[in-house]
Amino acid sequence: MTHEENIVALLQVLQAHHHVIVTAHARPDGDAVGSALALAEILDQMGHDVEIVFADPVPEIYATLPNVGRIRRATRVGGKEGAVVILECDSIERTGLLDLGSRFVINIDHHASGRPYGAFNWIDENACAVAVLVYRIAEATKVDLTPSMATCLYTAVMSDTGSFTYPGTSAETFELAHTLAVKGASPSQIARDVLFTSPLSKVKLLGAALSNLECDGQIAWSWVTQQDLHRAGATPEDCEGVVNHLISIAGVESAVFLRELPSDNQFRLSIRSKGRVNVAHAAESFGGGGHRTASGCTIDGPLSSATGRILKQLRDEPC
């Protein structure tokens, strides 16, 4: 279906549900947080009773987003029956919420690994962020695009395009950024809030990760252990963005950052590519997914085994 047909079908579905829950994937990023907040405001203006529920806390760098306080953290949504809109998840389980199975699920995604698991599915892997799809809903419904919505959507787009550097960035991306700036988003303030507010613990952890840096040909990798996090006084949130330092190395085409999880001898992987290597395919082979140039998955340890398996997969990926 075309974008217009998808939106018409979506609005018809929403008409049957007054109460709507908006959620996104566990460990939410800027696209998840910003898009959920903007979509909730759109649904508010459409007359729906809206809740935003996340399984994990909002990262501190997004704590200044308008209306962020309306996001409720829980493992179960409970309460009223109605529809649930799941943003950028390849499965219900990825939300981390435990009681969505009986609800009417609306799946809106932009990942190459997106799957049609919902009662209604709108997946556009050509969109640079799920915020683009949310913006199209705002356009189609002719709601008032408020400064708060513009700020949330701009933050979502900026974060999911790597500050407008990833391959999915296009002329359409900058047209949308321009529109959002006209509608009240402040690009410089958003950049300061998101890019220049790293806690000391994150910088210390980055130092530990870079001390573990390894390169072999066109692949770079690094890792941190639970002990590294403890020494830096860091949290898992402080690991966000470390992999971007690895992929920035000249001559490197793919990079992976491994974070040891607290239990079960597992590692969470963030994988990046400059475009030649399809890291989404690599992540999918371990039950993860994402985009061609930015993906993630979880692999069983120990560290040497986890590292060896992902490096082999990346080396075997066709360019």
Rank of each mutant, 00 (worst) to 15 (best):
H19Q: 05
H19D: 13
V20M: 06
V20D: 00
I21P: 00
V22W: 09
V22Q: 08
A24W: 04
A24L: 07
A24Q: 02
H25L: 04
A26Q: 09
A26W: 02
R27E: 14
P28W: 09
D29L: 10
A32Q: 13
S35L: 07
S35C: 07
A36V: 04
A38S: 08
L43C: 03
Q45M: 06
M46I: 01
G47T: 02
D49T: 11
D49Y: 11
E51N: 03
F54K: 04
D56R: 02
P57E: 10
P57A: 14
P59M: 05
P59D: 10
E60F: 07
E60D: 08
Y62R: 14
A63K: 14
T64I: 12
P66N: 08
V68L: 05
G69I: 15
I71R: 08
I71D: 05
I71Y: 13
R72V: 14
R73S: 12
R76G: 06
V77W: 03
G79Y: 13
A83M: 12
V84M: 09
V85D: 04
I86S: 00
L87W: 07
E88D: 15
E88P: 00
S91P: 02
I92F: 06
E93Q: 15
E93G: 10
T95S: 03
G96P: 13
G96E: 06
G96A: 10
L98K: 09
L100K: 03
G101L: 02
R103S: 09
R103L: 12
